[in-house]
Structures are given as C-alpha cells and as structure tokens.
Design a protein around this nucleic acid. Structure first.
Lengths: 199, 199
DNA sequence: ATAATTTCTTAAACCAGATTAAGTGAATGG
DNA sequence: CCATTCACTTAATCTGGTTTAAGAAATTAT
C-alpha cells in the first residue's frame, strides 16, 4: 500500500481523513504504468477514469482548427488529470491524455468516484475544492491568453510547472502557452541576449 | 418567497430537494437590487458573496496588461456569478462584478454556503457539479482563445449567450471574445456583405 | 559508434488583428 | 431640448506572432 501514501498525503492537505477512512478509500484505486507516448485511453473513447500521477508526467492535448497540437494541461507528480468533459459526462473524449515519460498513475472510475462521495463525504469536499481551484486557475489563464503578451505567458508557465521547464521538450511548452515553437525559441534567445532574468 | 422559486427550480434541475429542504435553504439567501453600472462589491474588497441572477445581467471584468477591459463572464437570469478567486479564498478581489442593466440578485456568503453544505449535502453536490461544468467550459474557451480565429469565438459567444447578442453593447462582446471593438465591427460587416449566415 | 529521427535555432516573408484617427448616429443627463 | 457623452463604423498604418525553409544540435534506435 506504500504507493497510496502519496495519494492519502495529498488528500490530507485539504480535508481530514482517518486511517480507517484511508483504508476504505484505497481499494477504489488501481495502479497503472504507462510507457512514454502511451495514452491513458484510446483516442475517441470515453474517459472512464481520472488519474493521480505518482511519477512521470502526463499532458492533455488536442488539435486546433489549423491542425496544430494545443496542450491544455500538464500533470507531474501528485497532480490529477483526465479529459474532464468526457469524464464527468461519460461521453466520447475530444482530448488526448498522453504520457510524456514512463509514468505511474492511480486510477479511479467516475462511477467509483461518485460512490466514494456518498461513503466519504469529505472526498466530495476534496474534489469540490480542487475543482474550484482549477476553475480559478483556468480563469486566470484565459485572461492571460487574451490580454498578456507571450513572454508573460511563458513566465506564468515557469512558475506553475517549475519541475517541467528543463524536463520536457520546448515545443510542448510552446503548445501550452499558445505560440509557435519558433517564436518561443526566439523569445528565449532574446532573453539571453539581453541578459534579462525571468521573474 | 416567490423570488426564491427560480432558485429552487434551478437547483432542482441537478439535485433533488424536498419542500422542507427548500424551506431550510431559502433563509440563507438575501435579495439585492443593483442599478446599471453598480458593482456587487467595491473595487478591491473581498467577494463575500456569490450571486444568483433573478433578472438583468452582470459581467465580471478586469483591466489587462495594456489597460483594456477584458470580460471573463456574463451572467443573465438564472446564472451564478462572483469573483471566484476572491470568494473561495476570501482574499481581496482582482475583478469587477458589475451590473449591465438594473439587476436583481440573490446573495449567499461563502461562510453560509459552507454551512449549507453541511446541513444539506446535496447542495455541495450541486455546487460541485456546476463547478465541474464551468471548468469544462473554461477549458473549451481557452482552447478556442488559443487556437480558433476571432469569428469562431464570436459564434461560440452567440451560442452560449443567445439572449445577450442583441441586448448588450457590442464593445463588451469584443472584450469577451478578445478582439478590439473595431475588429468585431469589421467582422460583422464582412459577414453581412458576404450574406453569410452565422451557424 | 553511427544512422535516423526529433528538437532547436535563425531569418525572411507574411498575416490576423491592433492601433490610430475621423466621422456618424444614438443615448443620456442637466 | 440641446449638449455631451457613448457606441459604432470605416479605413490607413502598424505589429506580434505565424509560416516557411534550411541548417545545427541533441536524442534515440540499430
């Protein structure tokens, strides 16, 4: 059960959970290993599960109108990730949830998640709170996407995902902040040339 | 209590609520009238309350890096609205929540909302569900903002807020879809000239 | 090791949408 | 009821970021 320690610990940062309750919770989760480039569920399938990342990194992405990849979210260790629209309505998925490295996750199905909310009400509180926080984060990001120049968006990425900046290929960062890989490269070389410090 | 009918009815679209439970719920809400241009709370104050719109329209907006207004959300009848970041953490607000017409709302404070979640667990479920749905909507909107051309974003606005298209000044629609008022005007006249039909 | 592939950089031409400016019409207020 | 402000349009010019293309560097597979 050692692999569940990180999960319990993470949940306990937001709601209280006795050891007995933790024992109730654990069997709801299944462990899964994903190889680099492997997807959490097949393209177009329903996202049955939400994943809690133990180790590695996942990303959610889709093609935009012009056929470019756009990254919605990254998920390093102790983040939750899925195609939320598909997961909450159990409808076919529009997004790809893909491992960027060999990755270990814990999975829980929507059905089991809703069951768990009835058995352990604080779990519903936990997910309500992290959903509220995620909503705030997306509101801020939308505001940035519309009103802030690309360099500000790059800085915001660096603050949000400090562990990823020098770990994942730069083109995925570009697809997250919403610029072409060429332009991100140009921005970074301008920062260096000017000797500017980020943040 | 007639003014609470719309609230009860709206909640019952997602969770069950007996008449007795509805009677418990109602005293938690206070009614408030806002004049056109009036704000839900003073600039920089904490958003103590979340508002349920009975009649009229509110909008949430802030200035971007270049000093332009950016509209995050509109709320016509039966929508919920507040500065969510400020509301959930009870920290000073970054956003303006402002009436676009004379508007009637029901208010509940964060404190009372959390109390209510303990008294009526299905209310926590209700807010979890609408928060999940709002999160999905913001994910889609972010994807659009980054990858779709301005005309697509205008169409998406028209679908999302059909009651507002011919009701609010066009410059606020521009500030929502993320273009200058001049460019929205140009797009619309091009649609007309080409005799294209939206949607 | 070496070949094959992927990623990153640089630079020129290009474009969607911003900015500026000027004029017109519609609300609003005193 | 007039004056002022606010909302919308049109058009010229400008700009942040894209596209295209080509080469260099780093990974990955053989």
């Amino acid at each position: 059960m050692k692999e569940n320690d990180l999960l319990i610990q993470t949940i306990r940062q937001r709601v209280s959970l006795s050891n007995d309750e933790a024992q109730i919770l654990c069997p709801f989760f299944r462990r899964k290993s994903l190889n680099k480039k492997e997807k959490l569920f097949p393209n177009g399938a329903v996202a049955h599960d939400v994943a809690f990342v133990l180790d590695g990194v996942l990303r959610v992405w889709a093609y935009d109108a012009e056929g470019h990849e756009r990254t919605l979210q990254f998920a390093p260790t102790d983040w939750w990730i899925t195609d939320l629209a598909s997961f909450i309505k159990q409808t076919p998925s529009d997004w790809h949830v893909e491992a960027m490295e060999n990755t270990e996750v814990l999975l829980i199905s929507r059905e089991d998640q809703l069951k768990l909310f009835e058995i352990l009400p604080q779990l519903q509180t936990y997910f309500r709170v992290i959903t509220e926080n995620a909503l705030v984060a997306y509101q801020q990001r939308l505001q940035e996407a519309m009103g802030a120049p690309a360099l500000e968006r790059y800085k915001a990425f660096c603050l949000k995902y400090p562990t990823l900046v020098d770990r994942i290929p730069q083109k995925y960062i570009a697809s997250y902040i919403g610029v072409s890989p060429e332009f991100l490269s140009k921005m970074k070389s301008e920062i260096l040339r000017a000797g500017k410090k980020l943040i």
